[in-house]
Nucleic acid binder design. Structure first.
Lengths: 224, 224
DNA sequence: GGGCGTGTATGACGTGCGTCACAGAGTGTT
DNA sequence: AACACTCTGTGACGCACGTCATACACGCCC
């Protein structure tokens, strides 16, 4: 069997936006051009400012998109899980990657060359339309999120947990440190506030994971 | 002369993104469908959640895009000046307006019906491409900005001033209250920090405006 | 076993900035 | 002139949260 396992990749694409509505033949063209790569935990997939040579899809593991603020403080803007596509933005406007991408666990990533993606955009108005809608959604999300930035840490943490539970289910496999980077705060504050949540019976917490026991109450607390 | 002054509107469109590269005939079609309206200071152009019936271009005055946070606190996300187009997002995905738009001064706004805009998108791949690029830029901007949210108020104010000076020149005609809403802070803190800037000779300030005297130093302070 | 790195936890301390209270200066309106 | 309203400015106070120090539990490697 070939190391790139093309049939599996095709199945992955068939199930992820914006590739869902492509014909099998079109998908096959992308698959043929794309390559699969394994990243060890902590390894960098790409860096902010690099020319964007590929659109990426997570196949296994977990990849974090990270921005570095003034003073070197890391802030993860997004947690990508299997089946999620990231950075089609550069494929549309051919500008560099807007953030760092780092494997937060041992991961497998499918890389579709920007060229192939872009060519398909030109040829296929439906694909263009779908990509566009994906983008509009993303823009709305980001605008929404930038409003939450001014909430209290308690709220941001509650929202981070709820967002992650959509991807992972009730138990979220992130360390407190990773949660802190997501909620733009420090580990200490994160631990303290999760402590409050625990005392209220909203969550239970273990080494490397925290599980939500009362999502409703947490949602109220998050202001949603 | 007709009250909508079509020839002036055409000239306006010819000079603003994403309409620049349209042919005069195509622009004329948009102009014919669009309407000009005057808004008094404080008047609402549209509200968040309303169906988006028009793409708007500021012709005179100043329009603020405003989000209301939990607790009713207003936060202006964007200051639109003459020649700027706002809310093409809903024209692309046909979803509601994502924010309130309020005239911050007596203003004149050209409203291009979403339908006309959308139809042109379908017919004209170049126009679609240009709109797309405008969007990608906007997405990058917003992502950038959402990082700045976690900076100190001092930095956010410095950045707000510098950003505004690109549109208005050295003297920025906003009240301290408006600056506060832009930097997501309170009037009191804004006044205090502008006070520091003034003592350092970076700015001078008057009723309803502040003028930047040392943009370089301010830029350093803003971390840019 | 003993070291070492990482994740979790808790306390003490300082501070940026929001909140409240008050006041003068400018502008418009009757 | 008198009043109301907005804009600007200053001081006092409190609190959420960042910073620093310390400690213990767990896994990994020699």
């Amino acid at each position: 069997m070939a190391p790139s396992r093309p049939q599996t990749v095709a199945a992955l694409l068939a199930d992820t936006e914006p590739f869902k509505r492509l014909t099998p033949a079109q998908r096959q063209r992308l698959v043929a051009a794309s390559r699969e790569r394994r990243y060890a935990k902590g390894e960098t997939v790409f860096r902010e400012g690099q020319p964007a040579d590929a659109v990426c899809i997570v196949k296994e593991g977990r990849v974090h998109l990270i921005k570095f603020l003034e003073g070197g403080q890391a802030s993860t803007t997004c947690v990508m899980t299997p089946g999620e596509t990231f950075c089609c933005l550069p494929a549309l406007d051919r500008k560099p990657y807007p953030a760092d991408a780092v494997a937060a666990a041992d991961s497998v990533v499918v890389r579709v060359p920007t060229e192939a993606f872009h060519q398909l955009l030109q040829e296929n108005p439906t694909f263009l339309q779908d990509s566009l809608c994906l983008f509009c959604d993303r823009l709305r999300q980001v605008e929404q999120k930038s409003c939450l930035a001014y909430d209290s840490v308690e709220r941001r943490l509650a929202q981070a947990l709820l967002g992650l539970s959509k991807k992972f289910g009730a138990t979220v496999p992130l360390t407190k440190h990773e949660l802190a980077e997501l909620a733009h705060t420090t580990v200490e504050t994160t631990i303290r506030i999760l402590g409050h949540f625990r005392k209220q019976g909203l969550i239970t917490s273990a080494r490397g994971s925290t599980t939500i026991s009362k999502p409703e109450t947490l949602r109220r607390l998050a202001g949603l």
